[in-house]
């Protein structure tokens, strides 16, 4: 369904993020993309929906060449690729329902979305998705009033409201505690099965990847160094991906580094407008 041939990305600074990526993803397959930080995992999935422009190669989704699209056609293609982010990437000051409905933006016109007059079916589907991820009671809460795990569920609902064929998932568990991480991964897995979605999941937690993916691709310095079943992932292969380490004694790497997150967060400590507002409060702006 998704085919990448010879995809490369070189940043204007000259850094090579990806070299000659060849990858084919059949319908309904959940693929985990593992590799050390800076290996190009994020760049790779962002190349697929063109948040990052690949500098060479071709990316085809159901026969459509994505790299050449622009304007209306690009937006059309993006609708069919739902993306889930590491820091949830919700709009904090919008309500949960508004955040989920933003998944419909590719389908409705500007004025409709501006006035929040979404079609009835879209609202029904949005509510059903919120029920599915377990948050129907939270529709009118602001996104910044939710815990990390809840936010990620909203992020998932938003991606699914696009009725995508493919999910692009960027480190879905990096900001979550171990238990919530597993719940989120299980949810993504189940939803992919229910809707026959293909998914590319960037993940640094090898154990989680092995448990929840059908297939694992290892990326190192922008090149694919492993492509196979989770069971084929041995210590030697992990060493080629990540470098030397005693793999058998670290069953769930990184777990301890992540702070617990199932309690309700307050608003972010540093909202984007903090600096401007403080200069106003000080009376220093003239």
């Amino acid at each position: 369904m998704l085919t990448l041939t010879g995809v490369g990305k070189r940043y204007p600074t000259g850094d090579r993020a990806l070299t000659d990526i060849e990858l084919t993803l059949p319908k309904g397959q959940v693929m985990a993309l593992i590799g050390p930080s800076g290996a190009g995992k994020s760049t790779l999935i962002r190349c697929v929906n063109r948040l990052v422009e690949p500098t060479q190669g071709s990316i085809r989704l159901d026969g459509t060449e994505l790299t050449k699209l622009s304007g209306h056609k690009l937006r059309h293609a993006r609708r069919s690729m739902g993306m889930i982010f590491q820091e949830y990437a919700l709009v904090d000051r919008l309500t949960v329902m508004e955040n989920v409905l933003s998944g419909q933006l590719g389908y409705v016109g500007f004025w409709r979305s501006f006035l929040r007059r979404y079609p009835q079916e879209a609202v029904i589907e949005a509510f059903r998705l919120l029920e599915r991820v377990g948050l129907p009671h939270a529709i009118d809460k602001r996104a910044d009033a939710l815990s990390g795990g809840q936010r990620q569920r909203v992020g998932i609902a938003r991606a699914l409201l696009q009725s995508p064929k493919l999910l692009l998932v960027d480190e879905p568990t990096a900001s979550l505690d171990p238990k919530t991480s597993r719940q989120i991964m299980r949810l993504i897995r189940e939803l992919c099965a229910e809707r026959e979605l293909a998914a590319i999941i960037n993940i640094h937690d090898v154990a989680l990847a092995q448990q929840f993916a059908d297939r694992i691709v290892g990326l190192r310095a922008g090149e694919i160094v492993f492509d196979g079943l989770p069971s084929e992932l041995t210590s030697e292969i992990l060493t080629t991906i990540y470098g030397e380490e005693d793999w058998d004694t670290t069953p769930e790497p990184m777990d301890e580094e992540v702070s617990g997150d199932e309690t309700t967060n307050t608003a972010p400590i540093n909202p984007p407008y903090a600096r401007v507002m403080s200069s106003i409060e000080a009376g220093a702006a003239r």
Binding site: L51, R75, A89, L90, F110
Partner: peptide, 22 residues
């Protein structure tokens, strides 16, 4: 970025992604 990834138009990205933040 997330709003752009949904296939939103430029104006919609402003309306949903930028405006609430400012």
């Amino acid at each position: 970025e997330a709003i752009s990834a949904t296939g939103a138009s430029r104006l919609q990205v402003m309306n949903y992604g930028v405006l609430p933040q400012v």
